[in-house]
């Protein structure tokens, strides 16, 4: 889904705000159905958060500064190995299916899945 033009042009500006058009785009991506009152509250709060985040842009960062994806580095000794990617039997299938909102003969029921017929 292409972002609206507005979303692209705003990135060039120094003082970004989340317009109602950008907001609608985000709501679509987020798969949320909102009523007007809640939408207004959320957009207002998002714009206030953006103000707070703006502090980040004033920080001088050396160009060679690496990212930190989590604080504590792992060494070869401390890094836990990954488990083997191997299917194993589970005795929890029934317990898992019990949590499904709608089931028919152990299949999960959902409404129509939007699709395009291939010619």
């Amino acid at each position: 889904m292409a972002p609206p033009e507005d979303l692209v042009t705003k990135t060039q500006q120094s003082d970004p705000t989340i317009s109602s058009e950008i907001f609608r785009h985000l709501v679509r991506l987020a798969a949320l159905e909102l009523d007007d009152e809640e939408a207004e509250y959320l957009r207002r709060e998002l714009n206030q958060q953006l103000q707070a985040i703006r502090d980040l842009e004033s920080i001088e960062l050396p160009t060679d500064l690496p990212i930190t994806s989590h604080g504590v580095p792992y060494s070869s000794e401390t890094r836990p190995g990954l488990r083997q990617d191997r299917a194993e039997p589970s005795d929890k299938a029934d317990a898992i299916l019990e949590q499904v909102p709608e089931v028919e003969e152990r299949f999960i029921v959902v409404p129509d899945i939007p699709h395009t017929e291939l010619e």
Binding site: F23, A30, A31, E33, E38, L42, L46, D112
Partner: peptide, 24 residues
Amino acid sequence: ADLFELYRKSRGQGFGSQPKLRIL
């Protein structure tokens, strides 16, 4: 009407405003 509407409705009704803010 379709699966996407199920997602939107379930998430819209199931989440409170704080999770919604974080997602957005």
